[in-house]
Amino acid sequence: MSPSLPTTAARRPLVWMPYLLGAGLVASLVFVFFVAPTELKMGEVQRIFYFHVASATAALVGFIGCALASLAYLVLRMMRGYEVLARVADRLAVSFGEVGVLFGLIVLITGPLWAKPAWNTFWTWEPRLVLMLLTVFLFVGYLVLRGYAKTDDLGKRLAAGIAVIGGPAVYLIHVAVEMWGGNHPQVMTGQGGGLEPGPMRTTFALSLASLCLFAGYLVWQRYQHHRLVEQVDDAYLTLSDLEEQP
């Protein structure tokens, strides 16, 4: 069997990508601090909103991506001839999970920092806060399980199982905590929302777009990373095979 190693030139399309995304992020920062008007009742702190909600969206996309890719992995794993695709799904799942946890942490840190001046408390047992906290716990568990299993294959399977259960579980937690009651600012209600048209909306759209694109780029980076880790492991295996041969 000839070892299939990747070509020497590390494939680097889109080298300009980080610069473009960085420019987008800087532009949205400028909009957040200099273009968006000061909010009437909350004052300057309301500016946290733009990145807080954008991060929450990115985290949500990450968790959904992780659950769907894990589902694909569990399906493809048992199908003959789809081993490569299964590995792709697994790498995608863990990359989505990592980025989701990252943005979840950002939401959990910026949330209390906004709640303190706005509601005069760092933490209230409020539905969406609780939902994000529990979801982050669940997916931290996913990452731990995947990293600390006895064998790689077992870790991948167990973690994928957690993520697949986690998808509907997060939905159910959402339903339960909403029924339980709470008072988060319902800015994005789906019916136009309470965000003033004009600079506020432009700023929010810009931050949402630039942060989600950056999140996507991070997922891609993590994907490349996991692929390279697997390739390095494979290379060590082929090397030791060759060295053992007489």
């Binding site: 716990f137 259960i165 579980a169 905590v177």
Partner: peptide, 14 residues
């Protein structure tokens, strides 16, 4: 605790 408790939270609340 990290994985089981969050999932059963809806049951606990209800």
């Amino acid at each position: 605790p990290l994985v089981v408790y969050p999932v059963v939270v809806p049951l606990l609340i209800a």
